[in-house]
Amino acid sequence: MRTIVAFLLILIHCAATADQVNIKGGVFTPLYGSAKKPVKVDSFSMDVAPVTNAEFLKFVNSHPEWSKPSVSPLFAEAEYLHHWSSPTELGPSAIPDGPVVNVSWFAAKAFCVSKGMRLPTVNEWEYVASRPIPGADVRKVILDWYSVPTPDVLPSVKSGLKNSSGVISLHGLIWEWTLDFNSAMVTGESRADGSLDKSLFCGAGSASAADKSDYAAFLRFGLRSSLKANYTVNNLGFRCVK
């Protein structure tokens, strides 16, 4: 009997955390990079909001290898979760429903895997991010955000704007990790050779200069290519997809 109750509890728990929306696949033209070719994105489901401090704390408690004292510098820099007041307490700088930041790609990936999910690819993320936000100008939202410094305490993940897919806070709250963030070829080492400057120049050149949302997407592209998987940044979080 007790096992049944436990099992039911687990089921209820899983259902409650599965706060996702279905994203119907389609074709879109990424706003970043020099290849202005349409790409196909398959259907998937995406977390409505970024992962919160409270959710990540629960994960750390059940996966102690991801607690600050145990994690190897190979998988997360020293600044990992440094906005929390201790390895197992959020404290005043990290409200429970605020987005978890200062997490490395490895930690974000492990969190999603623990839920049977994964990080979105760049194309999936950009595909959803290209949807309009009813009642708001996406470009203005993004550029306004870029012009404001990151607040000391990030607000609730639900505080952001909802786009037409029902996804909240894609723009205007934090940057987000993607599965293949390291696919950007900008360090002059690949066959499609090009320095960061050249890539930026090419991308900017291929985008219409008057289109500010291209510029915004291009900043995301630039950020991604500057990251390493163990980096932790105070306004970089993530959400999972399935």
Partner: peptide, 19 residues
């Protein structure tokens, strides 16, 4: 794909599927 990405990240190797 996640595991391959993880490995490539660990050795600072970048790759991207193209057409």
């Amino acid at each position: 794909e996640q595991d391959v990405r993880e490995f490539s990240s660990l050795i600072d190797f970048k790759y991207k599927k193209i057409a």
